[in-house]
């Protein structure tokens, strides 16, 4: 039953997301046709109207758009490769080349964030309210108040311009699987680090709080009594039960990371989804904006659903409770 309810909720939310995105067009003053043609004449108006089905009723337009969306036909860009009388590049292909970069950036940043946050949280949880703990809490609070668009230029200034440790903006990025694996990681390091900084603060705080609670449980005392080392207790016993809040928040974080990615890609000129979106907005490429918005929102919903189901994998107690009920 729970799954059925979830599934219905998911479908309804996704449908509403597409509807809202489609409704954006109605915010445009006048018909989008004139926006597209920009005084290119009646021939253009007729052509575009017929082509995009803009003469049909609103509901039909929406359903048509939805049908195209479901079949992977995202329409054609108004600006990219478009000229009078010629259709632009298919948006699907634009997105296909852009999304791996954004994905890599986000995954890389999360790996980085966890590698830093987990040890910090463990150390802070071992000695709660001592100097290190307080210091790290203060630092994370301050870190959370620095927006990405301040961190990114500062890191570029320090690590690329002043010290030349990492390549700066507009560096060429070889594909991850082209044999230049290390060059790729080296170039991606700074963008990913910018995204990681905010996550480290969040993860460190959450994991530390949960860990402090876990360390007070009986099974930890038991493990201590058996003579296990602190390191083993922390990594093998305390870590897993302390990760639930972390996981939920990690899912919610994805939204913030996508937001961050838009900024980071603009600073570093990485050709990911974020830069594509920024360019499309600057050039009033409406169908591309709609396509990116819808895809990103649906991906965000699905990721959160997946993380929800991950609970079952991580916590056997929930699995058993669900199986018996």
């Amino acid at each position: 039953m729970i799954w059925l309810r979830r599934a219905i909720q998911l479908v309804v939310t996704v449908l509403l997301v597409t509807l809202l995105t489609f409704l954006l067009t109605s915010l445009l003053p006048g018909s989008p046709v004139y926006e597209i043609c920009q005084g290119a004449g009646n021939a253009c108006v007729k052509q575009v109207t017929a082509l995009d089905g803009l003469n049909k009723p609103f509901v039909v337009q929406y359903l048509l758009w939805l049908k195209h969306l479901l079949t992977g036909n995202l329409g054609y860009s108004y600006t990219e490769g478009a000229s009078f009388g010629a259709q632009g590049v298919p948006i699907a292909s634009l997105i296909k080349t852009a999304y791996p970069i954004t994905l890599e950036e986000i995954v890389f940043s999360q790996v980085m964030a966890l590698m830093v946050a987990v040890p910090l949280a463990m150390y802070a949880a071992l000695r709660p309210n001592r100097l290190f703990d307080r210091l790290s809490t203060t630092v994370s609070f301050a870190t959370l108040s620095v927006p990405t668009f301040i961190v990114a230029p500062l890191l570029v200034l320090i690590f690329a311009v002043t010290f030349h440790v990492f390549p700066g903006p507009a560096a060429q990025i070889p594909s991850l699987f082209s044999g230049q694996f290390l060059t790729n990681l080296h170039t991606m390091f700074l963008p990913a680090a910018v995204l990681a900084i905010g996550s480290v603060a969040v993860y460190q705080r959450l994991l530390r709080a949960d860990m402090v609670a876990t360390l007070e449980e009986d099974f930890i005392l038991m493990a201590r009594a058996k003579g296990l080392t602190t390191a083993r207790i922390l990594t093998r016993h305390a870590l897993r039960p302390s990760t639930f809040t972390l996981m939920t928040v990690a899912g919610i974080q994805v939204g913030g990371l996508i937001t961050g990615a838009v900024i980071v890609e603009s600073v570093f000129q990485l050709n990911g989804l974020g830069l594509l979106l920024t360019h499309s907005v600057a050039q009033h490429d409406y169908p591309t904006i709609q396509a990116i918005t819808v895809i990103v929102a649906v991906a965000y919903i699905v990721i959160n659903l997946l993380i929800d189901s991950l609970y079952l994998v991580i916590d056997p107690r929930i699995r058993r409770a669900r199986a018996t009920s």
Binding site: V17, V262, I263, L277, I289, I292, T293, V296, A297
Partner: peptide, 9 residues
């Protein structure tokens, strides 16, 4: 919707 994506569109 991720905030900035919604805001931009």
């Amino acid at each position: 919707f991720p905030y900035l994506v919604l805001a931009l569109s």
